[in-house]
């Protein structure tokens, strides 16, 4: 597995507040990584810096060997890093179909092709296939503002995935989703992304999700990565237990592991 994203010595300060400190991470192809940490630990700041929304105070971010720190979000997106948002960023007064049609059109039409009609049968069928992949075809003609939160989140992620990015960063894909819906939602997302061999990094608060879907964990605390390890190791790491998860989860996990005879 080759390294595609290399972050070194990343720092970000807002006035006196240190939002990111000495961040060093390298991400290889096909990895699935969970980013955990309390609110304000610097998770979203990290994602924002990698995707170009925030400029770091210092440090380097290299993607496929290219320095991307000075690039605006659109250029980083074009290079192959896409992202979703904690609050879904969709075209609220358009239908699900129109949202994805727009996404496909922006991705596919460049230069003078922008002056070709947005709608074509081929594109419509690609959109419909994408809707199926994310299992939101039932909502095809519903206006985005009327969607249930879970569907809107799926739409947001589906739009980010239109470009078939090398890396997809998901900002809390399950926040605001009910407990019963979480796993089905994640199944859909991970299944769809696996088909494309996308490298996934996602921010998550729910340790059960982390445990089930990721192989590697980055734990943030006060702007620093306090642990970067395979999931099994990370979840029992002392610092992670103290700063990120809190003892309670850990205890229930051990109990559960005891009764269920070590379900990984």
């Amino acid at each position: 597995m080759s390294v595609i994203l290399e972050v070194s010595d990343l720092q970000k300060t807002f006035g006196a507040v240190v939002a990111a400190k000495d961040i060093n991470v390298s991400v290889s192809e096909h990895e699935t990584i969970g980013i955990i940490g309390a609110n304000g630990a610097g998770k979203t700041t990290f994602v924002n810096m990698v995707t170009g929304y925030l400029k770091p105070t210092s440090g380097r971010i290299q993607f496929l060997g290219q320095d991307i720190i000075h690039l605006p979000p659109r250029d980083i997106t074009c290079l192959g890093i896409s992202r979703s948002f904690q609050v879904p960023q969709v075209f609220m007064s358009e239908t699900v179909f129109e949202n994805l049609l727009m996404a496909y059109a922006i991705v596919e039409d460049t230069g003078l092709a922008m002056l070709s009609p947005i709608m074509s049968e081929e594109r419509a069928s690609r959109v419909d296939a994408h809707l199926k992949r994310y299992q939101i075809e039932d909502y095809r003609d519903a206006v985005a503002s009327t969607l249930p939160q879970g569907v809107r989140k799926l739409l947001d992620i589906a739009m980010a995935a239109v470009r078939s990015p090398r890396i997809l960063m998901l900002d809390e894909p399950t926040s605001g989703i009910s407990v019963e819906e979480k796993f089905p939602l994640m199944d859909i997302i991970m299944e769809a992304l696996k088909q494309e061999d996308t490298t996934v990094l996602f921010i998550e608060h729910d340790m059960e999700i982390v445990e089930r879907y990721v192989a590697r964990v980055l734990a943030f605390y006060q702007g620093e990565i306090v642990c970067d390890a395979p999931t099994e190791e990370a979840l029992v790491d002392e610092k992670v237990r103290e700063f990120v998860i809190g003892e309670e989860y850990h205890r229930t996990r051990i109990e559960r592991a005891g009764t269920e005879t070590g379900n990984a």
Partner: peptide, 25 residues
């Protein structure tokens, strides 16, 4: 107005952040 560029008006009006993160300015 029927072209991709024409529809971009809608996209820009409704959500510039999304437009940026789809890879367009």
């Amino acid at each position: 107005m029927q072209t991709t560029l024409g529809y971009m008006s809608m996209a820009v009006r409704e959500n510039e952040i999304r437009v940026e993160y789809l890879g367009y300015s």
